[in-house]
């Protein structure tokens, strides 16, 4: 078996492992929701005041008290599901790492030259960051989002983006392929985890505040609202939210991840400009990919400003994170596949 075939096989194994991890984390989430619902229904004596209080949605979300909520090993979680999630996730990371290395050996170069390889390494980083973030405490929701995105991305890579492992065209023969593209991939992976964390933050904040958009009438679209009524963030289906860290702690996690991501993204821009100066004879030419990267940079800069602006921190800042992540994804997919520019390296017809 050649190194290229071995690489593809390892990536398939990794995808399978991540799928199992995804199922495990989803089971964990479902268990948490289910048990906390039955617990509330039985109206047991207040054995765990924090969880119960939060479930009803009365507790104000600040102060030292919330810290305790996240930490003690909760009887509501499924230790077995979490164990499976963690171990298959780690196994998947190792398999994917081996797959990426084999790919590099097969092509005889650093494996970040086309969309297929970019996706592999990006997923590797996102899952790696997830493993590190979960080192101390399990965040099943973040795990579900990140693992879910990873499985989808790997499937897309294997089925759509796949190209033969081979050497690259002269424009890509530069050490900047390692630095510029490598850092861009790492930043994308970090942004993925930051995005998941900000989604969780907004959900948790809604539950803490006890408010949901599904409570008020939607006017003409009210039938839609009634159909979705079961998905109220304050309702029983989101009871598992009481188990996650507080909105404030999650906001802080999002910020730290995005700080790292933003610095890496800045380096991606600067490194790209230096490479463009070497390869194309100009450091900035408003190429579609350059514009996309610039827009993402500006959006994340807006996030950093928003969270220190009165009235914009918290939920509103998190929405900017979502926009930023959407721009990052569009910059990777739409710009590579639909728009033609100097960055058209996907290797796809």
């Amino acid at each position: 078996m050649s190194a290229a075939d071995l690489s593809t096989l390892l990536v398939w194994f990794a995808t399978t492992a991540f799928t199992i991890a995804l199922l495990a984390w989803t089971t964990d989430l479902a268990r948490i929701a289910e048990r906390s619902t039955t617990r509330r229904a039985s109206a047991a004596p207040v054995a765990e005041p924090v969880a119960v209080g939060a479930a009803v949605g009365t507790r104000a979300g600040s102060g030292g008290g919330d810290r305790a909520a996240a930490t003690p090993p909760s009887p509501l979680r499924s230790a077995r599901a979490e164990g499976i999630g963690r171990s298959t996730g780690t196994l998947g990371v190792l398999l994917l790492l081996a797959g990426v290395v084999a790919r590099g050996i097969a092509a005889g170069r650093w494996p970040t030259a086309n969309m297929y390889e970019f996706t592999l390494v990006g997923v590797l980083v996102a899952m790696g960051v997830l493993t590190v973030v979960q080192r101390r405490r399990a965040l099943p929701f973040v795990a579900v989002v990140v693992t879910g995105i990873s499985v989808l991305a790997l499937a897309l890579a294997l089925l759509v983006f796949y190209v033969q492992a081979e050497a690259v065209q002269p424009a890509l023969q530069s050490y900047w392929l390692v630095l510029h593209v490598g850092v861009a991939i790492i930043a994308t992976g970090v942004f993925t985890v930051g995005f998941a964390s900000s989604v969780l933050q907004v959900l948790r904040e809604g539950r803490e505040a006890g408010r949901s958009h599904l409570d008020r009438s939607w006017g003409a679209a009210d039938p839609v609202r009634r159909a979705l009524a079961g998905w109220k963030v304050t309702g029983p289906r989101f009871a598992w939210l009481d188990q996650v860290p507080t909105a404030r702690a999650l906001e802080s996690l999002t910020f730290r991840l995005l700080s790292v991501g933003f610095v890496l993204w800045t380096f991606t821009l600067i490194g790209g400009a230096i490479w463009a100066e070497h390869a194309w004879g100009r450091y900035w030419g408003w190429d579609p990919k350059e514009v996309g990267t610039f827009i993402a940079w500006v959006v994340y800069a807006a996030y950093l400003h928003a969270r220190t602006t009165r009235g914009w921190s918290g939920r509103r800042a998190a929405f900017i994170v979502w926009v930023g992540y959407a721009v990052v994804l569009a910059n990777f997919t739409v710009i590579n596949l639909v728009v033609t520019g100097k960055h058209s390296y996907s290797g796809l017809g």
Binding site: G285, W286, P288, V291, G292, F294, I295, V298, V299, A301, A302, H305, A306, T308, T309, R310, G311, W312, V327, I335, V339
Partner: peptide, 25 residues
């Protein structure tokens, strides 16, 4: 800060058409 934030968002939005419509340069 509010206006700076607004201008940042405007800048991001204003940069988009350049990727949708061909550019002379």
């Amino acid at each position: 800060m509010r206006v700076a934030l607004l201008l940042l968002m405007l800048l991001a939005v204003a940069a988009v058409p350049g990727t949708m419509v061909p550019q002379r340069a």
